[in-house]
Design a protein around this nucleic acid. Sequence first.
RNA 1: CGGGGCAUGGCCUAAUGGCUUAGGGCGCCGCGUUUGGGACGCGGAGAUUCUCGGUUCGAGUCCGAGUGCCCCGACCA
Length: 414
Amino acid sequence: MRQSELFTKTRREAPKDEVAKNAILLTRGGFIHKEMAGVYSMLPMGLRVLNKIADIIREEMNAIGGQEVFLTTLQDPEIWKKSERWSDEAMDIWFKTELATGTEVGIANTHEEPLANLMRQHISSYKDLPRFTYQIQTKFRNELRAKSGLMRGREFLMKDLYSFVQSEKELEEFHEKCADAYMKVFERCGIGDKTFRTFADGEPFTKFSDEFQTLSDAGEDIIYLDRKKELAVNKEVYTDEVLAELNLKKDDLEEVKAIEVGNIFKLGTRFSEAEGLEYLDEDGKSHPVIMGSYGIGVSRLMGAIVEVLADENGIVWPAEIAPFSVHLLALPGGEKEADKLYEKLLAQNVEVLYDNRQDISAGQKFSEADLIGIPQRVVVSERSLEGGGVEVKARDSDDEKVIDIDAFLNKMTN
RNA sequence: CGGGGCAUGGCCUAAUGGCUUAGGGCGCCGCGUUUGGGACGCGGAGAUUCUCGGUUCGAGUCCGAGUGCCCCGACCA
């Protein structure tokens, strides 16, 4: 992508109405646009990042047997009345609207009920189990208070997977498998070393649920972390009794703030019974399907990554989710060679943002490159050419070295 | 939902109730000089000062109501 053609612009100053680091940097860098409180549009580079995160999640969910679907945003109240979650008392974040005919409909905030209902068409025998269904879809939640940029929105992108199995044992097995897959996702997103599996309140379904908490002062949660065991307990269930049950010692725990980037629940038969999702076993006996739900806030994860990895100059994207892998800067005297290099990189399928803009000072190009946070910066200028090629610098390092253009191209092939 | 703060060109902001024809910076357009860490000069375009109502000879400025945004708290299947 030629930067001269990119429609977004960076801003030098933080928007007045944002305080959260993720919101400030993503807005300044031209990744997102705020529509209203808790509601953000994704601009070209923001969408590239979001899609890359979503793709990582897809790969990991597919790897454990997930099958992707795309469920509807408009939801049928009848299905929700069966589980007694249609009322605003039971679910205080509902957005509801009505059809032209006056019929009430719900706007999706989660999908246990509609999916359980849908799966009735496809699960009727033990031979149809297990099944793992997921989607990456916009959720709408009428939060009393949206806050902190992408961290708590009224409209946000979420991956939600639902498991359908026969036994508690299978549920447990998949739960662990999914927990491992989640850690892979967070590692690939560059925050693996700061993200910990955390015991949290599992009500109303089970005693505990598993959260995935990323250490950050921007977080809303307080957790007690045992770094050696790489396990944590959410403050909401932090009692002597629970610590004993989990075999954790108070002295080994550290109180830290964290962002909840994922959460997995054992649902049991709560929704299958309500929706009538049953299967026949080998003896012809009917049983409700056992369910679990597994969520990752995709847009929140994007915000969390910015919160955790950014430095004083701007965003620092990890390689796998960066909008581009190379930021090529043409400085005076290097324009021609930069043009050629850009074409060659494209031919090698390297994702490159090419700052080919003219009459922009070198300083401005550097500052903007730091703000945008692409992992590798490559400068072509009279100076670099005299030095023997292009100047290569990683966003997360101060080391800068000049290397031969062909050597650089070779390196980018691998 | 309780408490606090804020609202002025696209963005950041300035402006004792009268000196205002709402000033500056960024960004934008034109010309010129520049070009290694958000350059400089000159010229130019761009504003119902959030909305409604009130006080006043006179309101961006004071008062009331509303709306929006941010923060703290509560809430967060």
